[in-house]
Each structure stands twice: as structure tokens, then as C-alpha cells.
Amino acid sequence: MHKEPSKVHTISIFTTALDQLRSSVLKMSSLAQLNLKNSIKGLLERDDDWCNNSIADDEEIDLLEMQIDHEGIEVMSRFQPVASDLREVISSIKIGANIERVADQAVNIARRARKLNEHPQLPELHLLDRPIRLALTMFDDAVRSFAERNATLAVELKSRDKELDQLNRELTDVLINRMQDDSANLPSYLNLIFISRCLERIGDHACNIAEDIVFAVSAQDIRHPSKQQ
């Protein structure tokens, strides 16, 4: 399902504009990957500095989201793209919005981690290991799918999202039970539940990105399969 346009446009500035848009999406995704990893580091190593870095760097990602929108609109208004070019522009704008939300979840995790760091570490923190690994891998693979125009890898992300959803539900049940036995640490348990929820949302955004990549590469709409004819 790999599909790479075989030739450059006759109008070279059209190719340049599309390359610029793609490059902005890749830059934004690298920054979001870094921010997410910094948040997780701040959480697992109980280090506020990593958390603060992640929160501070979110601004650049917000600016890049707007830049991608502007670049996409400019390509549409100047070159009236069609077919694979049009799908690429539409998908890039939508992917930009999803990356921005992943970065917002990284900020949410960093803020919750700072609150957790104010109290002694709960042993239940390591219950987050699996969902963290899964969410990070899903987002990394979504970015890789975009970089490689790999729709096969993108499709595969949908099944992993179900696993992440299930982990979030199980973890929430466990932590609610612990709250009842250990009410002194209730705020920290709540923060762990919120972080688990953030990881689950990152999986959703990775899936959304994957759907847009499949559309860009193969023109298939794989959203809401039960509602399609």
C-alpha cells in the first residue's frame, strides 16, 4: 500500500509548497514525540524539570499547527490541488490538528506528574508501564506511517487502540478499588487515572492520524466502518 508520487510537478513551486507542508507536519510530529517523552520521563523519574520542559515547548507546537493550516490553505488557493495532492493537503491539516492534541495530552500528563511528584511515590505508578509503552509506540508508528506513506502500518494501529482502551478500563477499576482502601492518597490515585485517560486519548489521536494517512495514500475512508455502505 506504499504509494509515492512518481514525478515532480511541472510547476516546481507547487512541489516546493507541498514539500514545505509535509516538512512542517514532520517537524511538528518530532516535537510532539519529544514533548510526550519528556512528560513520561518527568512522571517515571519524578523530575519536574522534564515536566516543565514539556509544558513550555507546547507553544511551538501550537504555532506549528497554525502554520500547517496556513500552508495547506495557501496550497489549495494557489494551486487547486486534485487527487493525491488534494488528499495529502487535507490529511496534513487534519493530522496537524491531531498532533496538537497529542501534545496537549503530553502537557496534561506533565501537569499531573508534577502533582504526583509532590507526594511519596505510589507503587501503582508502574501499572502505567504497559499503557505508556503502547501509547508511545502507537504515536511513533503513526508518525512513521506519515513519513513513509505506509498505509499498511496505519491500518494496523486500529487494532492496537482497542488494547489500549481495554488497559485503561482495567487500570481505572484497579485504581478506584485502591482509593477505597487508601483514601489518604486519593488525589494521587485520581491523577494516575487521569494520566491513564490521557494515554488512552493519545491512542485515539494516533488512530485518527492513521485514518488520514490511509485516506491520503489510498483514498479509502476507514473511519466508522459500520456506518459506511
Partner: peptide
């Protein structure tokens, strides 16, 4: 034709990748 043409030559022509 203008969103997902079946033939590569059509895609190249309508997206301006011809010649």
C-alpha cells in the same frame, strides 16, 4: 477522476506531473 483516478497517467496529468 479528480479525487482518486484509477490510472497513473490520469493522476499525473490532473495533478500537473506531466511531461
Amino acid at each position: 477522476i479528480f479525487t482518486n483516478p484509477s490510472m497513473k497517467q490520469t493522476e499525473e496529468y490532473i495533478t500537473g506531473r506531466f511531461g
